[in-house]
Design a protein around this nucleic acid. Structure first.
Lengths: 199, 199
DNA sequence: CGAAAACGTTAACAAAAGATAAGGATTTTA
DNA sequence: TAAAATCCTTATCTTTTGTTAACGTTTTCG
């Protein structure tokens, strides 16, 4: 997959938020960089400031915390999705978790510096502000659903829902990561799967 | 508390996101409306589209879902905080929960229509986009912490943390609402409190 | 003021989840 | 290809939580 191809995928991916005109895109695309993460390679680790927000053109990553020496996976991102340690990136604070490639992963990246530059670029400012707003609003909606699930559903209900709405991630992600994502232990998820199969 | 006083509180509250100049504020303040919710009065109920985002100048509200006929409280907002059914407001979709005043509550409100108008107002657009972006980013950071708590902490740890960081809400909010907020039943919270007192 | 509603605690029992360890299958990698 | 690592399941035991109900206190409201 060559660079132009990645840029195109990026542009298509952004279209759900904002459509850039040719001249705007010309400028924006000069502020991008590119990277590939090997499987198990980290995009960011605890204690650093996250300097990039990314678009994944290929692959998958997991977000995890380390608590009492144990890794706890909280989220995943896949191709055609955005990825960053948002809080650290936005507030310039030390990051408190890890983002690691689960598969070999291609990234289109915007550095914090370049983003700020575009936000003060007269031809781009308005559209970039809107882009940032729409992306952030999109994530708010995702988070709203996620928190609601924790508040109103049992682990078993959360599993059943996931199995219904995103069956494919079970083919792609080790089950013990998914368990963490659902807020339970891998052993418990194994039991729930057995239980719900028998019913 | 008169209208001007509420507007001032609103302006101060927004300052954490964006500072408006006099001429900008002149326009913005003409797009506001005001309301007071009596205790137990609803700001929005399930099945409606949320038409306002609000700033609370006095009082407190709770957000709750109804599941199997039972109310489950998921969040609170207090004076000097923003309040809305964001997903419904932003995406113009039917709202799936309830927002109800816990105390008598004063609101400064921006309607969806007025917000859109300001977003297309040449003198306000850029700043309103930025305002929207920064608010949304702020909520993303809050949500990030909330989800992390559900993923990495036990109910008891979440309680201890809340007791440490926001002790005052126990004086202000019925305990069974707080239990829901922590993701457990009221009975369970009562046990946890007894347990942690004895230690 | 008095009845009704709301609230927090406790008890008893059932159900679910956590912790730990073991076993076997698969995948990774040196 | 062989050893190591990863992964899922299962079993056992402990701990925690959910459920339901009862009780006393406080608050609300007609």
């Amino acid at each position: 997959m060559d660079k132009q191809c990645k840029i195109n995928a990026f542009r298509t991916g952004l279209a759900q938020f904002v459509t850039f005109e040719e001249d705007e895109w010309e400028i924006l695309s000069q502020h991008l960089s590119f990277s590939t993460l090997k499987k198990k390679e980290h995009f960011i680790v605890e204690g650093k400031v996250c300097d990039y927000m990314c678009f994944i053109t290929r692959g998958a990553v997991r977000y995890y915390h380390i608590k009492d020496g144990q890794e706890i996976t909280g989220y995943f991102s896949f191709e055609n999705e955005l990825m960053s340690a948002y809080k650290s990136f936005l507030k310039r604070t030390l990051n408190t978790n890890y983002i690691q490639a689960i598969e070999e992963t291609d990234l289109v990246m915007i550095s914090y510096q370049n983003l700020q530059q575009m936000l003060s670029h007269p031809l781009l400012a308005l559209k970039m502000e809107r882009f940032g707003r729409l992306v952030a609003e999109h994530y708010i909606c995702c988070y709203e659903d996620r928190v609601t699930a924790f508040i109103t559903q049992s682990p078993e209900e959360r599993y059943t829902m996931l199995e219904k709405t995103a069956k494919d991630i079970f083919q792609r992600i080790p089950q013990h990561f998914i368990a963490n994502f659902l807020g339970i232990t891998p052993v418990s998820l194994s039991r729930i799967r057995k239980r719900t199969l028998l019913q």
